[in-house]
Amino acid sequence: MNTHMTIKHHLNEQLLMGYAAGILPEAFSLVIATQVSISDEARARLESYEAIGGGMLEDSDTEEMSPNALDSVFKKIEKSKSTVKTKAPEMVEGIFPEPLKKYTGDELNSIKWKNIGRGVKQSILKTDKNASARLLYIPAGTAMPNHSHNGLEMTLVLEGSFYDKDGYFKRGDIEIGDQELHHKPTASDEGPCICLIASDAPLKFKSILPRILQPFFKI
């Protein structure tokens, strides 16, 4: 593993801790919640970072509650009884786990794609303005234009796989891009690659044409 990858690994851990702490923008949270729904290992890591919060809560100072707080909680419970009876949901099938379905609808054919050239398609998901989220569809064997990033970008593979100079990424893997990463992700030959991407800044393209098109396609 080269140093670049090691730094990426740290970044990944830090963003996971950020999710555990609850300080990520919605788009980044969506990527992590989706990855955790796909990958046991990501879930184990998230649960471990959440345990830091648990430990801190256990050790926390106390702040006195209002005298009738417990009563009013029992009253609220009574009121909420008719509305809640959540069952633990079934495990998911298909490529979109539950947290993502809230943004995309149930399946692939419910997505409204926009062509952005070379058969590449994208669909922008609605999140808060602190970062953006989108789905990207890259046909088998197709390379994205070479680009770098102004800010932080997380790319989660949902289907198929892609590779670039940093490695090979398959379903459940996340690649993190930042100012240091100039790459040209290419979908593997076996089939199309579908990714979920969160970014807190627009992409920077190296060649002129995609740069001109960028504002129109919001990539």
Binding site: I7, E13, Q14, L15, A20, A21, I23, I52, M56
Partner: peptide, 20 residues
């Protein structure tokens, strides 16, 4: 770490930490 869990840190700040 404490500031993150107390919700007193931005996602950029935590990303800029070089390895905890």
């Amino acid at each position: 770490v404490e500031r993150a869990f107390y919700n007193d840190l931005s996602h950029q700040e935590i990303a800029n930490e070089t390895g905890l």
